[in-house]
Design a protein around this nucleic acid. Structure first.
Lengths: 141, 141
DNA sequence: GAAACTAGTCAGGTAACCTGAATACTCTTC
DNA sequence: GAAGAGTATTCAGGTTACCTGACTAGTTTC
């Protein structure tokens, strides 16, 4: 731990430390969920999204996404409605409780961002974001 | 995707993009392995390590670690030897091939670090490391 | 030298994915 | 306007990467 880490390990550690706190924050706010559920909450649109669309965005099979959605239905965060524009499809839409959970997530992330700013300073945080953006732009397709 | 990402997502994306390339590089160099095997390679000491020690460092149960080690034994990367200093224990030690695989990993990481430097510049890379170090020091225990 | 502890193993279980095949509806295209 | 091609979802079963619990065999402590 005290040894000089390579940059990649540092990125990984920073991510897992902070990412862990997101779910923790949302759960702590009274909206229990599993880490994988964030994949749905992060992608679902306010008007409702199709299963296949969610699956594609979360980079998983529709079958796996269906299972996640089933769990969220059981927990009362979303419901399945027929899609008026396509008889084959169903829309996954957030319930009131679901929208509240998303809002709690947004607030938690905001809090973590503030925490990062507190540690690095306004300038440092901006600098970090700039460097990461550059890195992602270059590495990504 | 085009939207402004929060800092945490950026950290996660950067990590998974780069981390993925480590295993890819080692496998490409002729040392096939599964992503989870890195947990062993990263922790094992040159004189050999005990199973429980590896498990603790990788934050998993000894049983799970034993399974990983079994696979690595099958692949010829490590062997189990009785620990002379404790009759209950066995030492997991790298074979020649195992040491070569670790070396290939080291070189791959070095190459990725160079890639980061090429993207961000010498100064940018140093800055990134400084910010991440600060973040980790403050967030960690 | 018996009791309490530690290292490792064996058996069985679960979560989070996956592939392949079926069903139900929609959209051509002729 | 029905056949064929395509899309959305579901059903069945498999794999991987972990886990818990129970056990054996050495070790330390009093």
């Amino acid at each position: 731990m005290a040894k000089t880490l390579n940059t990649i390990s540092m990125l990984g550690q920073a991510y897992s430390l902070l990412g862990f706190q997101i779910v923790e924050g949302v759960v702590g706010a009274g909206y229990p969920q599993k880490p994988k559920h964030s994949a749905v909450f992060a992608q679902i649109s306010l008007e409702g999204s199709r299963l296949t669309e969610l699956a594609r965005k979360a980079d998983m099979t529709p079958q796996s996404m269906a299972e996640l959605v089933d769990e969220l239905v059981d927990m009362g965060y979303v419901v399945r409605q027929p899609d008026p524009s396509d008889g084959r499809a169903k829309l996954i839409v957030l319930t009131d409780r679901g929208r509240q959970a998303v809002e709690a997530g947004r607030r938690t992330i905001e809090g973590l961002e503030d925490q990062v700013t507190a540690i690095l300073g306004e300038h440092g945080h901006r600098q970090l974001r700039r460097l990461l953006t550059k890195l992602l732009d270059a590495t990504n397709t």
